[in-house]
Design a protein around this nucleic acid. Sequence first.
DNA 1: AAAATTACCATACAGATGTATGGTAATGTT
DNA 2: AACATTACCATACATCTGTATGGTAATTTT
Lengths: 207, 207
Amino acid sequence: MPQSLTEVQRKILDFLIEERTSRGIVPTLAEIAEKFGYRNRSTVQQHLEALEKKGFIKRNPRLSRSIEIRLEDKYFIPRPVLGEVAAGNPLTIYPDAIDTVELPSVAKMPGDSFLLRVKGDSMKDAYIFSGDFVIVNPNLNPVNGHFVVAILDGAAVVKRFYKKGDQIELHSENPDYAPIIVDRKSHVFKISGVVVGVYRSMEKKTL
Amino acid sequence: MPQSLTEVQRKILDFLIEERTSRGIVPTLAEIAEKFGYRNRSTVQQHLEALEKKGFIKRNPRLSRSIEIRLEDKYFIPRPVLGEVAAGNPLTIYPDAIDTVELPSVAKMPGDSFLLRVKGDSMKDAYIFSGDFVIVNPNLNPVNGHFVVAILDGAAVVKRFYKKGDQIELHSENPDYAPIIVDRKSHVFKISGVVVGVYRSMEKKTL
DNA sequence: AAAATTACCATACAGATGTATGGTAATGTT
DNA sequence: AACATTACCATACATCTGTATGGTAATTTT
């Protein structure tokens, strides 16, 4: 039962996870202090004590960079979820990460990649099913035929990307849905990133 | 262009990856030395120098636990591949890890989990397709309905597991293949582990 | 109003850590 | 036969690292 974190504690925990994801190593107290502008390591020390008491991390006495992130005992790490995606009928997407939900830590990703849980069966012809997670890299330029996550009217959709001159076509796999055609410079839509992978957990469901 | 590693260097690199995967932190020189029975850290030091010169890792001067594993720049880490699996018609499986291939580091796994690349379409009814990777945890006890990897006559297959009394039934998803029924104590087969996830890379193929 | 919590600073210290340097032995290569 | 590579050991050292202890100030809870 994860207790609630204070603002500072959550930021430090996020930093730990981020560093471990992007650099592969957990920062030292000194590095955390530097990151947050603390003049002293003992400030960090006390935040870490709080995080440990609340069960989010485990510290190993006298070992450097030995902070273990406890959320991973279940093979999960918290990652920002931007919302759920439907391929056909857009669902609501939240403007910012609404919550830090436990999601599978899938593949090695750039620190700012994110996961989206797919809802609905409109991607089934692309072998992506309801409940699957798509891994989205926001730093790639989409190529024709790639699956992208697009924000349309504040809702996120997964579509196949095609650029034709000044127009961008977003195709569904399911032929029941007509392609969406928008101007490249349109402000009503935005490509959030390219789908680089799909992950499906089999641990619970029998399918 | 990764240069070849010596036996010891490869073992140390594997250890680095394993520790990072299972503990979340890279070991110190002292820990590596202890693991391999070295009486001195400088032995490790020199192996790490070799690994760095060959481009497999990057060391950050004077920072503890700061070894970065360079293979991950491409979001890949080497993992032993035991072979390819077919769900219907068993393929050859290699008795030991035949190679250390660059495979996506998928999900957080126990250090001894492994990946198998699925071949053939006999699992398609379970939404697992040719080219997908199944993530296998060898330390779980299969429950009825779970997908398991079984070794039958030296070949690996992915099947759905059902225990009925003293018999174990291995069902294919594809009804064209008849279930395999074996005695629980049979020596001709062995359950290698439980499929805990499926990963599919989307980066290259347009599908 | 008193007490607890949160957020920060400073100083001190033992021991862990990476690194430098020099050496031995076995094996393979030219 | 000379050289290079691999694999290991030992000693030494600056400094990084986690930890202990004590203190101030602001905010929240009781």
